[in-house]
């Protein structure tokens, strides 16, 4: 770790307005904070300037958030560990390595852009994973760091399609059981009607996470069908679907 530049009392007093308004670059701001944290002088004038800068946003006319925003935040919060609590509840490592895609960084941090519909669906779906803490944490962390999350549902069950950093995944839990010779096959459907096979599921119990064989690209829908072995094109009606890009 590089040593941060030191800042003296004079510089702190001089740069307090810029600091209060967030107008120092990061190294300067860190040095400023570090100085205030350890300096015995009160720097009362600087502190008053910093404090005053806090009123700037309060001069704005309040805006009314969409009805969706609160639900979206509360859904995210429900699946986000608090920093100070994280040490008390370390997540158990999964027995079967299903979290490898997460821990290897296949899902880089990105901005959450889930729609309300997706968020609410994920919340209900995620809550049902309580009995499998490790899986639940992996799934919800993936969702929290995703670029987009789409809910999927149908007669076979529920799940989510998660897009992040150019990769896409399908996550589900406890799908309807199939006959031994059957599998679930996953598809992306494009606006011109093209249907592309993007993976299969060979088990239905518990949490299942599948990395799709290609990213969502310009696909407009995701679908899952029941097949007897992998096929080039679906042979039946979808048993689970998701609208993409909504």
């Amino acid at each position: 770790m590089s040593r941060q530049p030191e800042m003296g009392c004079t510089a702190v007093d001089e740069l307090a307005p810029a600091y209060g308004l967030g107008a120092l670059d990061a190294p300067e701001a860190r040095a400023f904070s570090a100085h205030l944290a350890q300096c015995r002088k009160p720097h009362s004038e600087a502190m008053e300037l910093i404090e005053t800068a806090g009123v700037v946003p309060m001069s704005l006319e309040e805006a009314t958030p969409s009805a969706a925003l609160r639900a979206r935040i509360m859904t995210s919060v429900a699946s986000t560990p608090q920093e100070h609590a994280a040490g008390r509840q370390p997540a158990a490592a999964p027995a079967d390595g299903r979290r490898r895609w997460w821990s290897m960084g296949a899902l880089p941090s990105a901005l959450v852009a889930a729609s309300l519909v997706a968020a609410i669906g994920v919340g209900a779906w995620g809550a049902s994973l309580n009995s499998r803490l490790a899986d639940r944490e992996a799934v919800l962390q993936a969702i929290a760091s995703a670029d987009a999350v789409y809910t999927a549902s149908g007669p076979a069950g529920d799940g989510v399609v998660v897009e992040s950093g150019g990769a896409a995944m399908f996550m589900t839990e406890d799908l309807v059981k199939l006959n031994p010779e059957q599998i679930y096959q996953l598809w992306l459907i494009h606006s011109d009607g093209t249907i592309v096979a993007v993976g299969t599921l060979d088990r239905t119990d518990g949490v299942v996470i599948v990395t799709l064989e290609q990213d969502l690209g310009a696909a407009v829908s995701f679908a899952m069908t029941v097949e007897e072995g992998r096929v080039e094109q679906p042979t039946g009606e979808p048993v689970l679907t998701a609208q993409l890009g909504a």
């Binding site: 946003p57 805006a63 958030p65 925003l69 935040i73 986000t80 959450v112």
Partner: peptide
């Protein structure tokens, strides 16, 4: 107040809601 601040900073309401979401989380 949070949304007003975010709109003033990023310009678009849609992106501002993302900012407010991220901030509360």
């Amino acid at each position: 107040m949070a949304l007003a601040t975010a709109i003033r900073v990023v310009g678009s309401r849609e992106e501002a809601e993302d900012v407010v979401h991220d901030a509360f989380v």
